[in-house]
Structure formats: structure tokens, C-alpha cells
């Protein structure tokens, strides 16, 4: 996994509540057995009209949004289905950071497994960022995971917190399975003492 220490990039703002993973990557694209190539299907039903032409009104299709790598989203982003394809699509499209007042749990965890940093910020801070971004006061931001701070190019400075374990894994681009296998002796000891109901008969 690609480590994420510090990321500088253009920001796109999406003012929609409860964006679910069915919107992020619609079901017709879940049939592939590969992990890559989902970016072209990101937000497909919003991004494209029924005839396949781009929907000019959709946030990601504006001229200003081109090349964005940081998504400023709203409450409960990534709710619904557990499909990790949603994060694969965001990452493949180019997003490295998603900022929102809240995330759905499974989506939030999936981000960390794919080098995407989800950052939780307070609702009023989100509002201020969205309003000033809409006014054209800023375009880009730097996200420093080491220092746990976001800085916008108009001078906002927002501290955030990330769980220590997840932060360490992302800073170093580490694979969870490798870490877990260091605890093989513990797992074996646990398995030796399991109760009857823990087995399949």
C-alpha cells in the first residue's frame, strides 16, 4: 500500500448528506474480479446522463474540480453497502483524502486499507470550509498526517485526530496481515482454548 504522509492537492466540495456507496460505485460495476480500474465508474449515475454523456451539473464535472485529489464531503459519507469498490473507485479516480463531519464505519475502515485518508472535522468547521470554497477563497489544501493538520491556501489551519494504529499503518504503508502474523503464537493459544459453540459441526 502506498504510504500517505503529507498530501497537497486541489479540493472539490460535495454538499450532499448521506452519500451512500451505491452512489459512489453503482452495483453494475461490482461484477469485476479485479481491484483496479474502478475510477471511470466513480459516481457513475450522477456523473453521467442516461445516454452516457457527462452531466455538466455534477460537482466533479465542473472545470474547477478537474484534477482534484481531496474531497470535502458532508455528513455520513459512505453509508450503506460494505463494498470496498467504493474506496477503490475514489482512489483510482485520484482521491487521496476525504474530509467530512462523519463517515459510515465500514467505509471509514476500508479507506485506511487503500491508502485513502478519511478525516473527521466538526460540522461548523466543515460549513466554514464549504462556504469559503464556494466563494472562491481557496482551491487547494495540504494535509499533513504526521502533524495531523489541514492547511488551506487561504490560511485555514485545522487540527484533526486519527486513531494511532491506523495512522501508523498509513504513514508507513503497512499491510495489516503482515502485522497480524506476528501474533501467530497468540492466535494459536486462543484457538487451543475455544468453546464448543465456536466451531462448525
Amino acid at each position: 500500500m502506498e504510504p500517505l504522509v503529507k498530501h497537497e492537492g486541489k479540493v472539490v466540495c460535495m454538499n450532499r448528506l448521506n452519500v451512500d456507496t451505491d452512489q459512489i460505485i453503482p452495483k453494475q460495476f461490482l461484477k469485476r474480479i479485479e481491484r483496479d480500474g474502478f475510477g471511470e465508474f466513480l459516481f457513475y449515475d450522477w456523473r453521467y446522463q442516461a445516454d452516457g454523456t457527462p452531466n455538466a451539473n455534477f460537482e466533479l464535472n465542473t472545470a474547477r474540480a478537474q484534477g482534484a485529489t481531496i474531497l470535502l464531503a458532508d455528513e455520513n459519507f459512505g453509508c450503506g453497502s460494505s463494498r470496498e469498490h467504493a474506496v477503490w473507485a475514489l482512489a483510482d479516480y485520484g482521491f487521496r483524502v476525504v474530509i467530512a463531519p462523519s463517515f459510515a464505519d465500514i467505509f471509514f475502515n476500508n479507506c485506511f486499507k487503500n491508502g485513502v485518508l478519511p478525516i473527521v472535522i466538526p460540522t461548523d468547521v466543515r460549513k466554514e470550509l464549504a462556504e469559503t470554497h464556494a466563494n472562491g477563497q481557496w482551491e487547494r489544501a495540504t494535509v499533513d498526517l504526521e502533524a495531523q493538520v489541514i492547511e488551506t491556501d487561504c490560511g485555514h489551519r485545522i487540527a484533526f485526530e486519527v486513531d494511532a494504529h491506523k495512522r501508523y499503518m498509513l504513514l508507513n504503508g503497512l499491510d495489516d496481515i503482515g502485522l497480524t502474523l506476528q501474533y501467530e503464537a497468540d492466535i494459536r493459544a486462543y484457538e487451543a482454548n475455544r468453546k464448543a459453540y465456536q466451531f462448525v459441526y
Binding site: R35, S82, R83, E84, H85, V87, I106, N109, N110, K113, N114, D163, H165, D176, I177, L179, T180, L181, Y183, I187, E191
Partner: peptide, 21 residues
């Protein structure tokens, strides 16, 4: 009982465990 993403599916297949807060 809870839902997990595909990376965690791989993790459980390999280790029969998951890291959780």
C-alpha cells in the same frame, strides 16, 4: 456480527482474526 470490506475479508481468510477498536 458485522460487515467488512474486501481487505478485511482477505485478512480474516489469512488470519481468522480482525483488528478492531
Amino acid at each position: 456480527a458485522f460487515g467488512i470490506g474486501t481487505s478485511e475479508v482477505e485478512h480474516v481468510l489469512a488470519t481468522q482474526c480482525l483488528w478492531q477498536n
